[in-house]
C-alpha cells in the first residue's frame, strides 16, 4: 500500500511538473512572436548574446578540436586496413557535422550557459526579484525568459559551426600530417559525400538543442526551491535535464530526418 502510495504520489508530482513546464514553454513561445518585432526585446537580447557567445566559444572550439582528433585517430587504422584511408574524410566529417558537433556543442552549452542561466534566474527567484517584476506589472517571462531563450536558440547553431570547423581542421591535420593521407582525395571524397542535406541535419539539431537548453534552464531557475541550496540543486537538475533532452531529441530527429531523406532521395551509400 505504501509502495502504491509512493508511486501514485510520484507520478502525480511528475505529471504536475510536466504540465507546468509546457505551460511555461507555451507562454514563452507566445511572447516570442510579438517580441521579435519589439526593439526592447533585442536590446535585452544583446547582452545575452555576448554572455552566451563569449562564455562558450573557447570551450566549444576545444571540444570540436578534440572530437576531430579522436575521430581521425580511431578511424584511420580500420579504414587503412581495408585500403579505404583516402575516404576517411567522409567518416570524420560526416560524423562531426551530423552528430558529434551539434551534440557535444550542445552539451558544453548546457553545462556552461544553461547552468549560469539557471543560477541567475534562480537567484532572482529566491531574492523576490521575479515577484518584484510581477508586482511592477511586468511579465518576467517576457522580460527575462524570451531574450535568454532567443540567445540560446540563435547562438547554438552558430557555436556548432565553430565546433564543426575546429573538428574538421583537426581531423584533417591528423589524416594528412600524421597519417600521410594525401590531402586532395581526402577533401575530394568528403565533398562528394557530404551534401547540403547533412549540413541541414546538423543545423536543425543544433537549433532544437539550443531551444531545449534555453527553455529548461529558464524553467528550472523560475521554479527552484527557496534558499541557496535550492539554486544549487536547480543548476544540477537543469544540466541533467538538458543533457537527457539533447540525447533524446538527437535520437528522434535522427530517426525522423533519415525518414525524410529516404522519402525524398532514397537510400545513399557512403562506402561505394
Amino acid at each position: 500500500m505504501s509502495f502504491l502510495a509512493t508511486v501514485g504520489y510520484k507520478s502525480i508530482h511528475a505529471t504536475e511538473s510536466f504540465g507546468r513546464f509546457w505551460t511555461f514553454a507555451w507562454t514563452t513561445l507566445r511572447f516570442l512572436g510579438p517580441g521579435l518585432f519589439r526593439y526592447k526585446t533585442w536590446r535585452l537580447v544583446m547582452p545575452n548574446f555576448y554572455e552566451v557567445g563569449n562564455r562558450t566559444l573557447p570551450v566549444v572550439l576545444i571540444t570540436g578540436m578534440f572530437v576531430g582528433l579522436v575521430l581521425a585517430i580511431q578511424s584511420y587504422d580500420q579504414l587503412a586496413a581495408a585500403g579505404f584511408e583516402q575516404r576517411m574524410g567522409i567518416l570524420v566529417n560526416m560524423t562531426l557535422v551530423q552528430e558529434l558537433g551539434p551534440v557535444l556543442a550542445g552539451v558544453m552549452l548546457a553545462g556552461r550557459v544553461g547552468g549560469a542561466l539557471t543560477a541567475e534566474l534562480g537567484t532572482m527567484n529566491v531574492t523576490e526579484q521575479l515577484d518584484a517584476l510581477r508586482a511592477m506589472g511586468s511579465d518576467p517571462i517576457r522580460h527575462l525568459v524570451v531574450p535568454r531563450f532567443l540567445a540560446c536558440l540563435l547562438l547554438t547553431p552558430l557555436l556548432t559551426v565553430f565546433a564543426d570547423l575546429a573538428g574538421c581542421l583537426s581531423g584533417f591535420f591528423v589524416a594528412v600530417e600524421l597519417k600521410n593521407v594525401p590531402s586532395e582525395p581526402y577533401w575530394y571524397f568528403t565533398k562528394d559525400a557530404l551534401e547540403r542535406w547533412d549540413l541541414m541535419v546538423g543545423f536543425i539539431k543544433s537549433v532544437a538543442f539550443g531551444g531545449a537548453i534555453g527553455m529548461i534552464a529558464c524553467y528550472k531557475g523560475f521554479h527552484c526551491r527557496h534558499g541557496a541550496s535550492g539554486v544549487g540543486r536547480a543548476c544540477t537538475e537543469s544540466f541533467v535535464a538538458s543533457f537527457i533532452a539533447i540525447l533524446a531529441i538527437d535520437f528522434f530527429l535522427a530517426t525522423f530526418l533519415q525518414g525524410v531523406y529516404k522519402a525524398l532521395y532514397g537510400f545513399k551509400s557512403l562506402v561505394m
Binding site: 532572482m124 523576490e128 526579484q129 515577484d131 518584484a132 508586482a135 506589472g137 511586468s138
Partner: peptide
C-alpha cells in the same frame, strides 16, 4: 487588467528585491 491594477500598488519587498 492585473497589470493595470498593479500600477496602483507600491510593494517594498522583505528582501528589497532590487535588480542586481
Amino acid at each position: 487588467a492585473l497589470t493595470e491594477l498593479r500600477t496602483h500598488f507600491g510593494y517594498l519587498f522583505q528582501m528589497s528585491a532590487l535588480f542586481d
